[in-house]
Design a protein around this nucleic acid. Sequence first.
DNA 1: CCCTGTCTCACCCATTCGGGGGATGACCGA
DNA 2: TCGGTCATCCCCCGAATGGGTGAGACAGGG
Lengths: 211, 211
Amino acid sequence: MNMAVDLPIRILVVDDHPLLREGVAAVIETQADMLLAGEATDGHEAIEAFRSLRPDVVLMDLQLPGMNGIEAIAAIRREFAAARIVVLTTYRGDVQALRAFKAGASGYLLKSMLRKELLETIRCVHGGKRRIPSEIAAEIAEHATDDALTMRESEVLHHVALGDANKEVANDLGISEETVKAHMKSILSKLGAKDRTHAVTIALRRGIIDS
Amino acid sequence: MNMAVDLPIRILVVDDHPLLREGVAAVIETQADMLLAGEATDGHEAIEAFRSLRPDVVLMDLQLPGMNGIEAIAAIRREFAAARIVVLTTYRGDVQALRAFKAGASGYLLKSMLRKELLETIRCVHGGKRRIPSEIAAEIAEHATDDALTMRESEVLHHVALGDANKEVANDLGISEETVKAHMKSILSKLGAKDRTHAVTIALRRGIIDS
DNA sequence: CCCTGTCTCACCCATTCGGGGGATGACCGA
DNA sequence: TCGGTCATCCCCCGAATGGGTGAGACAGGG
């Protein structure tokens, strides 16, 4: 065990908020065993940066302009299966967290967490382990039993959120109104919503559909 | 004019994200004419901190646990009419911005903005001027023509977002169902929404209602 | 003092929604 | 091959919704 010559952990920060990047950088720079390898502001940049920098750990926001953070995680992991990626986001609901792990994330951090947790998570993930805050784990567990919406159901709900009546959704999707109603029944049941409006509120909160 | 002995601008940062606070602090510390006076994580702390520290400029997030950022701004300005407060938030819609200015904010910054703009805004506001990014100004202007929802209408819409039917809203607010329907008509008209569900989507996007 | 906006309430009526049934074919993993 | 899920479609029917129109009370500003 050559603990004596530990190389610093090289970190890539992906976030579209320069101020937050500066904050993370400032925290990282106080640590002897960490090094800011680079920064990126969107998914495409993140992938390119990973290719050229090969960081040990990536801190990735999920709300990115252009390419989604989840897609970026999946893309990086497809190319570099050993990549360690930590999600670093403001609270955006549980579905996002679940998706991030399915895409290959190793950790999940909320921006409201303390620097101590940030550093612990980076070291933990760099060591090959996964790390999930208990709040997030609880939420994932809570909604893992609930059935997730199918692709079609999400699509229907997205149209409904924009004010389309069942008939209009049916036209847009090229299906029967009766089918849309069937989907709606399923959506209301799965989300435990009282009506379509409530369903949209829940879905927006959980990140199932985007504004 | 004693420009020779400029005192540094003392800054109070109010945000519930420690990492962002560190970022702002790191940026401020690079400036010779600025000084981090203190930090607060919610509205109450912000008010107390202002009383004891009397900073020259406050950077205030609007999404705060407990007391709202807008309320905190109003409270501080009630007590210290000369307080210079800059809103520093992620994009949360235009209504928030308008409310912030009405509450007494002197500047509005998005977290996605660059450090250069942060510093310019701090200096500008400290000098007694207002500073509003053109994007924000345009959005405010755009929706200033639209009628804003009244307090009662927002209240109704909030209940509707949670899945309450008109009858339930009526019971909760102690008014007639017919009145709720009248409010709904007004809401749909003002927001240009196709139905109640659309109205909720628009209102959430614009920050008219929360959650 | 009048006018405007807000909040309140009422009635009519066509359309939409949501809950209850049931059914078919396709696909996929056991 | 069997069972499950998904997506599609159909029926009935009571309740909710949204548009139209009207109107009284009350506060505030010009």
